[in-house]
């Protein structure tokens, strides 16, 4: 564990907490993509199956349980408890266009052709693009509430911090996982446009509004 990775994990955790608080306090999931949340739940479930086969550390197991349970809780809030506020019409991204290529890619490019390893690889690929339905929703409505922007910023920062962690681990431990590094870079690049808008608008107290 190094500082970059810890900061990345905490940023990831913060994103999820921000999201849950936003939904709970406003009693609404307006402006949020349920499809992205379904993809994230799929990511955590397929990646953390090793929870039952491999013990790494208490921290590791604890975080995995938190990520799986909070993502399921988010889906419950969006699709059941606060369903009436869910912006279904704008959340029209076709997630099969993301899931199917990720399935194929994970079957073709993986480091070991075993069930757990292919599912892990699938989750890495899927995570890199799982935010697209949310970004699509923001681009369709043309704006995002500031709390949603904070959520996106924390979520995007997590993988960017992991890139620093991978650079550190490569030099300090000689450890690297090419699949995770490649997908993590793709993931971070997808947030770049948003990061720019966040810094130039949201941090200056303005609402995140896309140029017309």
């Amino acid at each position: 564990m190094n500082l970059f990775r810890l900061a990345g994990d905490l940023s990831h955790l913060l994103a999820i907490i921000i999201l849950l608080i936003k939904i709970w306090k406003t009693r609404s999931c307006a402006g949020l993509s349920g499809k992205s949340q379904i993809l994230f739940a799929l990511v955590y479930i397929t990646r953390y199956l090793d929870l039952v086969t491999t013990y790494i550390s208490l921290y590791n197991s604890f975080m995995k349980v938190i990520f799986i349970s909070t993502s399921l809780a988010t889906i419950y809030l969006m699709y059941s408890k606060f369903r009436a506020t869910y912006d279904k019409n704008h959340d029209s991204f076709r997630i099969e266009f993301l899931i199917i290529p990720c399935v194929i890619l994970s079957l073709v490019i993986n480091s070991n052709f075993t069930v757990l390893e292919v599912l892990w690889t699938f989750s890495i690929y899927l995570e890199s693009v799982a935010i697209l339905p949310q970004l699509f929703l923001v681009s369709k409505t043309g704006e995002a509430e500031s709390i949603t922007s904070h959520y996106l910023f924390a979520l995007g920062s997590y993988r960017a911090l992991y890139i620093l962690n991978w650079i550190y681990r490569y030099y300090a431990e000689g450890h690297y996982e090419l699949i995770a590094i490649f997908a993590g870079c793709v993931q971070t690049i997808l947030y770049c446009d948003f990061f720019y808008l966040y810094v130039t608008k949201v941090l200056k107290g303005k609402k995140l509004q896309l140029p017309a």
């Binding site: 990775r5 994990d9 990831h12 090793d50 491999t54 790494i56 590791n60 975080m63 995995k64 990520f67 480091s111 070991n112 075993t114 757990l116 390893e117 892990w120 992991y162 962690n165 000689g174 450890h175 690297y176 996982e177 090419l178 995770a180």
Partner: peptide
């Protein structure tokens, strides 16, 4: 080195 089966990151 890539560890293959064991992934220690989240």
């Amino acid at each position: 080195e890539s560890t293959g089966e064991q992934h220690d990151e989240l």
